[in-house]
């Protein structure tokens, strides 16, 4: 069954709209399809690989604005992970959301270095995901001063557009640490480096679902996927948590020890 038919089914079952992309002059742009224009919904193959938007973020906005409406969403793997993680942070009420999943093209998965470019519903049909390097190893091979040099030279071209924060589906705070006068000096470019970027990296710990939208939106080309990928790796290895998976919350959000015994910590 095509995505359009599934979306029509959802609308028939009382959903108020289905969030996906509309094709306009050859570009895909986010659009909420209702029963009026559902016939114009394109097939997933028509969506260009390079045109991804934070649909989960838009969904969260819509759910807040229309407090009793129900929505469907045609989602990629990263959109689904973001929705799961947002639900854990009470930003999305999934009882009002129905998800239609699709898989990204192998080419896009490679560009994104995505280890799960499909939704949970399609997991059985997909091949086992392979280990993906996000450039972390090549940074780790450098000497300590060289690593600092590498990151400082990357951070120093930052224009503080806040695009990484604005487009991030998991950045939902009303008050942002990046705009705190005590942490980041205002009116100076580049912003306090490396603090500015490390603040965001720390905030991404236990949250980042590796959608890579931040890196795509960065006009300065900072390798943010590598930085946040490393943070995720630390959280996975030390705290045993992978954001975007169902079940427990991030250990960084909850009190108490969710990993290791007390004896491990005493040493």
């Amino acid at each position: 069954m095509s995505v359009k038919e599934e979306a029509k089914n959802l609308l028939g079952k009382g959903m108020d709209g289905v969030l996906f992309y509309q094709m306009k002059d050859g570009s895909a742009i986010p659009h909420l399809f209702t029963s009026k224009d559902i016939d114009e919904m394109p097939d997933v193959r028509e969506i260009p690989d390079s045109e991804r938007y934070p649909l989960s973020d838009i969904l969260s906005k819509l759910l807040m604005r229309f407090s009793s409406a129900k929505f469907g969403i045609v989602a990629r793997g990263c959109d689904e992970r973001a929705i799961i993680e947002l639900e854990k942070h009470q930003q999305i009420d999934t009882s009002r959301v129905s998800l239609i999943g699709f898989a990204c093209s192998p080419e896009l998965a490679k560009i994104c270095s995505c280890s799960k470019p499909y939704t949970e519903s399609l997991a059985d049909e997909m091949n086992e995901a392979q280990e993906i390097s996000r450039g972390i190893e090549s940074v780790e091979r450098m000497s300590t001063p060289a690593r600092l040099g590498f990151w400082l030279s990357n951070f120093s071209v930052c224009v503080k557009c806040m695009g990484c924060r604005n487009i991030c589906p998991l950045c939902f705070c009303k008050e942002c640490s990046l705009q705190d006068e005590d942490l980041v000096e205002s009116g100076v470019l580049p912003p306090s480096i490396p603090t500015f970027h490390l603040l965001r990296a720390i905030d991404m710990a236990g949250r980042c679902v590796m959608c890579g939208l931040c890196e795509e939106a960065c006009p300065a080309g900072i390798p943010l996927r590598t930085l946040y990928g490393k943070v995720s790796e630390i959280v996975r290895e030390e705290l045993g948590y992978v954001p975007g998976t169902r079940g427990v919350k991030s250990p960084l959000e909850e009190l108490g020890s969710s990993v290791g015994s007390d004896d491990d910590l005493k040493s």
Binding site: Q22, P30, L32, L62
Partner: peptide, 12 residues
């Protein structure tokens, strides 16, 4: 389902 006229989201 809520009033259809109300729910509208598009990008321009």
């Amino acid at each position: 389902m809520i009033d259809e006229e109300m729910v509208d989201y598009r990008t321009v």
